[in-house]
Design a protein around this nucleic acid. Structure first.
Length: 181
DNA sequence: CATTTGATGTTCT
DNA sequence: GAACATCAAATGC
Protein backbone atom coordinates (compact mmCIF):
# COMPACT_ATOMS: atom_id res chain seq x y z
CA UNK A 1 0.00 0.00 0.00
CA UNK A 2 2.74 2.45 0.94
CA UNK A 3 4.44 1.88 -2.43
CA UNK A 4 1.17 2.06 -4.36
CA UNK A 5 0.27 5.39 -2.73
CA UNK A 6 3.39 7.04 -4.13
CA UNK A 7 2.52 8.86 -7.35
CA UNK A 8 -1.12 9.25 -6.28
CA UNK A 9 -2.58 12.67 -5.63
CA UNK A 10 -3.63 13.67 -2.11
CA UNK A 11 -6.36 16.34 -2.16
CA UNK A 12 -8.19 18.41 0.43
CA UNK A 13 -11.00 20.88 0.05
CA UNK A 14 -11.89 23.32 2.83
CA UNK A 15 -14.15 26.34 2.41
CA UNK A 16 -14.39 25.53 -1.28
CA UNK A 17 -10.64 25.80 -1.83
CA UNK A 18 -8.90 22.81 -3.43
CA UNK A 19 -5.31 22.04 -2.49
CA UNK A 20 -3.41 18.93 -3.58
CA UNK A 21 -0.08 17.32 -4.28
CA UNK A 22 1.53 14.16 -5.63
CA UNK A 23 2.66 11.80 -2.88
CA UNK A 24 6.43 11.26 -3.10
CA UNK A 25 7.35 9.78 0.31
CA UNK A 26 5.55 7.39 2.70
CA UNK A 27 6.20 5.21 5.76
CA UNK A 28 4.61 1.94 6.92
CA UNK A 29 3.31 1.33 10.45
CA UNK A 30 2.07 -2.06 11.62
CA UNK A 31 -0.04 -2.32 14.77
CA UNK A 32 0.85 -5.91 15.68
CA UNK A 33 4.63 -6.28 15.22
CA UNK A 34 6.05 -2.77 14.98
CA UNK A 35 7.31 -1.01 18.12
CA UNK A 36 7.26 2.34 16.33
CA UNK A 37 3.50 2.15 15.76
CA UNK A 38 1.21 3.92 18.21
CA UNK A 39 -0.92 0.75 18.22
CA UNK A 40 2.02 -1.63 18.78
CA UNK A 41 0.97 -4.96 20.23
CA UNK A 42 -2.65 -4.11 19.48
CA UNK A 43 -2.67 -1.39 22.09
CA UNK A 44 -5.99 0.40 22.22
CA UNK A 45 -6.24 3.97 23.46
CA UNK A 46 -8.56 6.80 22.54
CA UNK A 47 -5.94 7.97 20.08
CA UNK A 48 -5.18 4.63 18.38
CA UNK A 49 -8.79 3.49 18.19
CA UNK A 50 -9.24 5.00 14.76
CA UNK A 51 -6.58 2.70 13.26
CA UNK A 52 -8.69 -0.35 14.09
CA UNK A 53 -11.42 0.77 11.73
CA UNK A 54 -11.69 -0.54 8.20
CA UNK A 55 -9.13 1.01 5.84
CA UNK A 56 -9.92 4.00 3.66
CA UNK A 57 -10.09 6.65 6.37
CA UNK A 58 -7.68 9.25 7.70
CA UNK A 59 -5.67 9.00 10.93
CA UNK A 60 -4.52 12.47 11.94
CA UNK A 61 -2.62 13.06 15.17
CA UNK A 62 -0.70 15.81 16.90
CA UNK A 63 2.99 15.67 17.85
CA UNK A 64 5.64 17.88 19.43
CA UNK A 65 3.03 20.32 20.63
CA UNK A 66 2.55 21.98 17.26
CA UNK A 67 2.35 19.61 14.30
CA UNK A 68 -0.34 17.46 12.70
CA UNK A 69 0.62 14.34 10.74
CA UNK A 70 -1.59 12.64 8.18
CA UNK A 71 -1.88 8.84 7.79
CA UNK A 72 -4.01 6.52 5.68
CA UNK A 73 -5.62 3.62 7.58
CA UNK A 74 -5.03 0.61 5.33
CA UNK A 75 -6.12 -2.76 6.69
CA UNK A 76 -9.26 -4.70 7.55
CA UNK A 77 -11.32 -3.75 10.58
CA UNK A 78 -9.52 -4.69 13.83
CA UNK A 79 -6.09 -4.70 12.10
CA UNK A 80 -4.37 -1.45 13.08
CA UNK A 81 -2.10 -0.59 10.16
CA UNK A 82 -1.43 2.80 8.62
CA UNK A 83 0.74 4.61 6.10
CA UNK A 84 2.22 7.98 7.04
CA UNK A 85 2.37 10.48 4.18
CA UNK A 86 5.74 12.22 4.60
CA UNK A 87 6.02 14.47 1.53
CA UNK A 88 4.06 15.67 -1.48
CA UNK A 89 4.87 17.69 -4.58
CA UNK A 90 2.26 20.47 -4.80
CA UNK A 91 -0.12 20.58 -7.77
CA UNK A 92 -3.30 22.56 -7.03
CA UNK A 93 -3.98 25.56 -4.79
CA UNK A 94 -0.43 26.92 -4.57
CA UNK A 95 -1.61 30.36 -3.47
CA UNK A 96 -3.61 28.91 -0.59
CA UNK A 97 -0.63 26.78 0.47
CA UNK A 98 1.63 29.81 0.52
CA UNK A 99 -0.84 31.61 2.76
CA UNK A 100 -1.22 28.69 5.17
CA UNK A 101 2.53 28.15 5.36
CA UNK A 102 3.33 31.88 5.44
CA UNK A 103 5.69 31.44 2.49
CA UNK A 104 5.82 32.71 -1.08
CA UNK A 105 8.07 30.37 -3.01
CA UNK A 106 7.61 26.80 -4.20
CA UNK A 107 10.18 24.31 -2.96
CA UNK A 108 10.70 21.49 -0.50
CA UNK A 109 9.97 23.72 2.47
CA UNK A 110 6.39 24.13 1.25
CA UNK A 111 5.27 20.48 1.37
CA UNK A 112 8.40 18.33 1.94
CA UNK A 113 7.91 16.86 5.41
CA UNK A 114 4.88 15.39 7.18
CA UNK A 115 4.04 18.45 9.27
CA UNK A 116 4.62 20.80 6.35
CA UNK A 117 2.28 19.04 3.98
CA UNK A 118 -0.39 18.81 6.66
CA UNK A 119 -0.21 22.55 7.22
CA UNK A 120 -0.17 23.30 3.48
CA UNK A 121 -3.27 21.15 2.92
CA UNK A 122 -5.07 22.57 5.95
CA UNK A 123 -5.13 19.19 7.72
CA UNK A 124 -5.89 19.15 11.43
CA UNK A 125 -7.51 16.83 13.96
CA UNK A 126 -10.94 17.59 12.55
CA UNK A 127 -10.06 15.26 9.68
CA UNK A 128 -9.24 12.37 12.04
CA UNK A 129 -11.45 9.44 11.08
CA UNK A 130 -12.70 11.19 7.95
CA UNK A 131 -13.52 8.95 4.99
CA UNK A 132 -11.10 9.24 2.07
CA UNK A 133 -14.03 8.86 -0.28
CA UNK A 134 -15.78 12.02 0.89
CA UNK A 135 -15.41 15.63 -0.25
CA UNK A 136 -13.07 16.95 2.44
CA UNK A 137 -10.03 14.76 1.80
CA UNK A 138 -9.44 12.12 -0.85
CA UNK A 139 -6.76 10.36 -2.91
CA UNK A 140 -6.75 10.16 -6.71
CA UNK A 141 -5.16 7.33 -8.67
CA UNK A 142 -1.66 7.56 -10.04
CA UNK A 143 -1.35 8.69 -13.65
CA UNK A 144 -0.74 5.84 -16.07
CA UNK A 145 2.40 7.59 -17.30
CA UNK A 146 3.93 7.74 -13.80
CA UNK A 147 7.59 6.78 -14.10
CA UNK A 148 9.07 7.41 -10.67
CA UNK A 149 11.61 4.90 -9.39
CA UNK A 150 11.26 3.96 -5.71
CA UNK A 151 13.80 3.24 -3.01
CA UNK A 152 13.27 1.71 0.44
CA UNK A 153 15.09 3.22 3.42
CA UNK A 154 14.90 3.39 7.20
CA UNK A 155 12.09 5.34 8.79
CA UNK A 156 12.68 8.80 10.22
CA UNK A 157 12.55 9.68 13.90
CA UNK A 158 11.80 6.22 15.31
CA UNK A 159 15.13 5.39 17.00
CA UNK A 160 13.28 4.56 20.20
CA UNK A 161 11.77 1.47 18.49
CA UNK A 162 14.85 -0.75 18.91
CA UNK A 163 15.46 -3.16 16.05
CA UNK A 164 12.24 -2.05 14.37
CA UNK A 165 13.93 1.28 13.70
CA UNK A 166 16.05 -0.50 11.08
CA UNK A 167 13.17 -1.79 8.98
CA UNK A 168 13.22 -0.49 5.41
CA UNK A 169 9.65 0.73 5.67
CA UNK A 170 10.06 4.19 4.20
CA UNK A 171 9.49 4.58 0.48
CA UNK A 172 10.32 7.54 -1.72
CA UNK A 173 10.84 8.54 -5.33
CA UNK A 174 14.56 8.54 -6.10
CA UNK A 175 15.79 12.05 -6.79
CA UNK A 176 12.53 13.86 -6.05
CA UNK A 177 13.41 17.26 -4.53
CA UNK A 178 10.53 17.19 -2.02
CA UNK A 179 11.75 14.04 -0.26
CA UNK A 180 13.38 14.74 3.10
CA UNK A 181 17.02 13.67 3.34
C1' DC B 1 27.59 24.89 5.54
C1' DA B 2 26.45 21.80 10.22
C1' DT B 3 24.70 21.58 14.66
C1' DT B 4 21.89 23.22 18.51
C1' DT B 5 17.91 24.83 20.68
C1' DG B 6 13.35 26.57 21.60
C1' DA B 7 8.55 26.33 20.65
C1' DT B 8 4.47 23.87 22.06
C1' DG B 9 0.36 20.55 23.82
C1' DT B 10 -1.64 15.91 23.60
C1' DT B 11 -1.20 11.40 25.12
C1' DC B 12 -0.21 7.86 28.16
C1' DT B 13 2.09 6.18 32.51
C1' DG C 1 5.70 14.08 34.49
C1' DA C 2 7.99 12.24 30.43
C1' DA C 3 7.84 11.28 25.82
C1' DC C 4 6.76 12.46 21.36
C1' DA C 5 6.29 9.49 13.51
C1' DT C 6 8.77 17.89 13.89
C1' DC C 7 10.20 22.35 12.22
C1' DA C 8 12.54 26.82 11.86
C1' DA C 9 15.45 30.16 13.77
C1' DA C 10 19.76 30.93 15.86
C1' DT C 11 24.36 29.79 16.50
C1' DG C 12 29.10 28.28 15.34
C1' DC C 13 32.36 27.45 11.91
Amino acid sequence: MAQDLIGCKLCTQTNGILTSGIIVETEVYNGRTDKACHAYSNKRTPRTQIMYEKGGIAYVYFVYGMHYLFNVVTNKKEFADAVLIRAIEPTDGLEEMYARRKMNVNGKLLTGGPARLAQALGIDKQLNGESLEGNKVWIESRNSDFEGELEATKRIGVDYAGEDANLLWRFSIIGNPFVSK
